[in-house]
Design a protein around this nucleic acid. Structure first.
Lengths: 214, 214, 214, 214
DNA sequence: TATGAATGAGCTTTCATTCAT
DNA sequence: CATGAATGAAAGCTCATTCAT
């Protein structure tokens, strides 16, 4: 009955199972949204029994919250690696803009998950204090960069770092989030490599065109 | 028992019923997404029998497609009323930017409906030819404006009208679409009148900062 | 508003409409059975409004009864044209057997309609007195034939005409009614022209083999 | 609250549940046909939750297929127990004929289920390979019997065993399948014990009258 | 006579969730 | 830790039938 498994092996499995569920749920929620996601499919994708999902995550909504938290900490960690403080103001802004574009490209699930959460009026993360003030440090850093640029005369003054941050995100996010309908409307494949490069360059132009003092 | 019904308030009016269903469905899909929407609730909201929805719209997916088509033609008609051609280039761009912000504010359903459609990879409107080339006239008009501005020296050259249009949309759309999560992250109520005004002004600054030649 | 239609034209249309409904219903019931038949499809097939079906036939069950009655009178009339009395006994039996095979072939709806009625325990025609004693004249005729044959020595005695009639019907009906499952079991297409001819000949052999005195 | 359930009457027994569903479905489909059968009633008859039917059998059509397969293997097993090889040719044919009559009497569901399947053009079992070649061994055995009889001079030659088998089935099947309409037409209760005995004797007479050499 | 509009009841099927082991 | 069995509630959809003209 009892096979000779070392005691920590079970805990390993527990952790591994939770990660498998989380990974599967991330995909499922990203593909189908919260309402469209199926617990059965998550279990199948994770290669685990459905009951286990309830064992570890209580219910579907709570699992969705966990997925959101994981996704938030993912982008937070990535942003922390940017080290904008060590860069020249214009370079810092360019780097943040480029990073944002690429991060969304590499993490398409981020976009649909946030859209789902907003469809549900941010219900799942409003209680999660962990997320509050996440990017505040980034905003502070960006404020520093803007101030440095203003002082040295390369950037115009009066730029609100939060608004700028949101604008940088907007220009990448919207394009990728709405790629299907936009491609449809304009009759062009907006996610082709060529169009991606064009958009990416345009975004930097817009942001720097706004920030840089002429 | 017999209430005095005026002759024009026909109880049996196919067109009116269809419109009622469409209006109810627009709200329901906007609030809950395609998967989260409930046909029962749509019927209730329309004050009509559920069966009638299937009678006129075949099934839920087709109803969603009809809603999208109505919503697209709504913004198309509004854009047609802009008359950008008669305006000075800078004023034209400012007007389009302002219009975009306000249109999304006044039609919040537009945003969530488009998000739903994109979650479903644009499946519903890819077959709908009506939508193709919708905004193409607007893009052409915007190209005209940009060219006029370039010639008269007030706008910089080399601006792609489609990219510009997408950027104008981005800066408003993303902010409103993600207002809940952004408010959460930044700990501020981004949809307060004060913040709305601030955002709206920022967007014009960004767009004109990019377009206007110094 | 009122076009100059002769008064009897309307009655013509009434009769024509009823016939169209009956014909459409016959097909629909034959193809899908009573439960599987759709009133909508019958109306569509008849090219008439659904409401008219209820106007003329009250409801689905009653329509089914009407179809059965029409179908019964169809075979009754055909049988009346056989004139077995004028034939030599062996020829009479051969003719009835052949006729039965061919009638089912040419009226496949007859088989499935009867199957449906029997699935419903003959509920629809038990009240219909018109059908009672339909084939009784045929049985009497067949009894005559058998007696003539017995007296002249070509047929064996003691044959019950009703049992014989049922057997003649059985051998054709079952084969055609169960053609799909039988073809499946035996891995042969039982309704191919070749197999039909073979079956038809076999049936005559069986019936005459039983009746004819050696 | 806690009733004394014996250990072997497990409340959670997959196999037992499936059998209960199958048994209930057999009755329901036999009584009402495929279209007329109600999944609710099947669940009720099985004393199980409706959901479980879909859990084990995917959908109504697949459940119907499973029922047909079970019913086919039922008659196959019974036929295998006949041991016609060990009998004298005439006795073998008589036994098969008797068996067929009785099998249908004892398994009335067999008839209506096959009728339903044929109404649906054999769709459910055309894909089921298991049924193919079911009775082939029986046909071979019957061919043997006929050959033995021909050699020994008691049976006439040139009899196709498949046609004979179908005829044997026809004479019983049709009578029972159409008992309601036939009783109606002839004004006699064809399924009374007396009439049953008469029919059974008649069938043997017909089959042997055809096969036996005079 | 004829028809499009409308409906209540009920159908098959789905889904998140819990039970029993 | 892990799982297959089981379920209540509700979803999308269908159907025979009736209403209003």
């Amino acid at each position: 009955m009892s096979s000779p498994i070392p005691p920590d092996s079970k805990q390993r499995d527990a952790e591994r199972s939770q990660k498998a569920i989380l990974a599967a749920a991330t995909l499922e929620f990203a593909e189908h949204g919260l309402a469209g996601a199926r617990v059965d499919r998550i279990a199948e994708r994770a290669g685990l029994n459905k009951r286990l999902i309830y064992y570890y995550f209580t219910d579907k909504d709570n699992l969705f919250t966990s997925v959101l938290e994981a996704v938030y900490s993912g982008i937070r960690e990535a942003e922390e690696g940017l080290r904008l403080k060590d860069l020249e103001p214009i370079e810092a802004i360019r780097k943040l803009t480029d990073f944002t574009w690429r991060y969304y490209i590499e993490h398409p699930e981020f976009i649909t998950l946030l859209n789902s959460e907003n469809l549900h009026k941010g219900r799942h993360l409003s209680t999660s204090e962990r997320v509050q003030k996440v990017n505040m440090t980034l905003i502070e850093t960006l404020g520093d960069v803007l101030e440095r640029g203003r002082v040295s005369g390369v950037l115009r003054g009066g730029i609100d770092p939060m608004q700028l941050y949101i604008s940088i995100a907007s220009l990448s996010y919207f394009y990728q989030s709405n790629a299907y309908t936009l491609s449809n409307i304009f009759g062009r494949e907006l996610m082709s490599p060529r169009m991606q490069a064009q958009r990416s360059a345009h975004i930097v132009d817009v942001i720097l065109g706004y920030c840089v003092k002429d």
